[in-house]
């Protein structure tokens, strides 16, 4: 445990020193502020909480942005160290390969969480103070759900990133694979599902099947988790029409995301253990 802690501190210090945290936090804050300030303009003095609008806009932003930065953090972490020669050296020390991966995962998740909490937190606070509703009347629960699920979404793509990084031999290959994975989960998968729906629009397709096919993708689980988090967000995102039997429980959505965190992580450790140096 002590050794994992040593690894975590070193990785975090590295992330801090190369200004990665500062850059990402800054970009996240700016994007979140822009989106939420623009998004809150049309609500005027309706009964809808401005923070609910912010949650809807931010979750759309997160679906593109968080997987991307998580993959950027993770794709190079093992193969890059292998290329620089520090991996061989590290593994001659009394650390197991499992500890190496877990150390990276914990510190990267920590860095990512800082960026998410600060970036989205600033946006959330700004909106809630700027709005006419009272501070306490805001949709804070939805907002906390957004923060939590964004961290989970980041963890999913960190795990996938490590699996890529332990498998390939060169970091350029890892970069290409990371971009491919990002496109697949964020864009292509949903397009494929749309095509499937369009093809089966004459009623031949099972709605229940499509729903679960969609939720297998962790980014869609994330979307569903946030867009249905309150009546306001559901209304804003067009999810209000969803009949109750089509709703999926929060627990199932979280379990799907946890599955996507644990499985690639375990796979990454297993592949890393067999990797020849």
């Amino acid at each position: 445990m002590n050794r994992i802690w040593t690894l975590v501190i070193k990785e975090s210090r590295d992330g801090y020193r190369n200004r990665w945290v500062v850059m990402v936090t800054l970009v996240m804050t700016l994007l979140a502020l822009t989106l939420s300030l623009l998004g809150s303009t049309p609500t005027g003095t309706t009964s809808i909480s401005p923070l609910a609008v912010t949650v809807v806009s931010l979750s759309s932003l997160s679906i593109f942005f968080i997987p991307l930065i998580a993959l950027l953090l993770a794709y190079d972490s093992v193969v890059g160290e292998a290329e620089r020669g520090t991996l061989t050296l590290l593994l001659t020390y009394p650390v197991s390969r499992t500890e190496v991966i877990l150390g990276k995962f914990i510190s990267h998740l920590f860095l990512l969480s800082i960026a998410i909490v600060i970036g989205y937190g600033i946006a959330g606070l700004t909106i809630s103070f700027a709005g006419e509703n009272g501070f306490a009347d805001q949709e804070w629960e939805s907002f906390l759900r957004l923060l939590l699920s964004s961290v989970l979404l980041g963890a999913v793509f960190l795990s996938i990133g490590y699996t890529i990084s332990v498998t390939v031999k060169e970091s350029t290959t890892a970069a290409a694979a990371a971009i491919g994975i990002w496109l697949l989960f964020v864009l292509l998968y949903d397009m494929g599902l749309l095509a499937l729906l369009a093809a089966g629009s004459d009623g031949g397709i099972n709605g229940e099947l499509v729903k679960w096919l969609m939720l297998i993708n962790p980014t869609d689980s994330y979307r569903m988790f946030n867009l249905t988090s309150s009546s306001d967000t559901a209304l804003l995102s067009g999810m209000a029409g969803l009949s109750s039997e089509h709703r999926v429980s929060d627990i199932s959505l979280i379990l799907i995301m946890l599955f996507w965190i644990i499985t690639p992580l375990v796979a990454a450790i297993a592949i890393f253990k067999r990797r020849q140096l």
Binding site: R17, T88, T92
Partner: peptide, 16 residues
């Protein structure tokens, strides 16, 4: 922990 190793070429982290 009783073994010391110097690799042929190692690029330590520049920012530490």
């Amino acid at each position: 922990k009783k073994i010391g190793f110097l690799p042929e070429q190692v690029l330590f982290q520049n920012n530490l």
